[in-house]
C-alpha cells in the first residue's frame, strides 16, 4: 500500500518536505499519528485533511494509491 501525503504551509516546513509516501496506513488517523511520530510539534497544530482532493470531516479509510493533503489555515493578507 502506498499513500501519497501532500503537506502545505508550515506543515511542509516542519516535516522538511512537501511530499511524503507512507505505507501501512489504514486510515487518515493513522497518517496523522505517523506524521506526529516524525514531528511531535504537529500535535499542537490545527490543520484540515483532504483525501483525493475532497475535504473530509471524520476519519476515513484509505486504499492503495490515495492522496492525503494536509492544509493549515493561513492568516496573512
Amino acid at each position: 500500500m502506498n499513500i501519497e501525503v501532500l503537506l502545505f504551509g508550515r506543515l511542509a516546513e516542519l516535516l522538511g518536505s512537501e511530499r511524503l509516501h507512507l505505507e501501512a496506513v489504514a486510515d487518515t488517523d493513522a497518517v496523522c499519528s505517523q506524521l506526529e511520530g516524525l514531528c511531535p510539534a504537529l500535535k499542537q497544530l490545527n490543520y484540515q485533511i483532504a483525501v483525493n482532493h475532497m475535504i473530509i470531516h471524520d476519519n476515513q479509510w484509505l486504499t492503495d494509491g490515495m492522496t492525503v493533503a494536509l492544509m493549515p489555515p493561513f492568516s496573512g493578507g
Binding site: F74, S75, G77
Partner: peptide, 8 residues
C-alpha cells in the same frame, strides 16, 4: 490568505 510562499 497567505503564508510565506503559499496562498489560499
Amino acid at each position: 490568505a497567505l503564508s510565506e510562499t503559499e496562498g489560499q
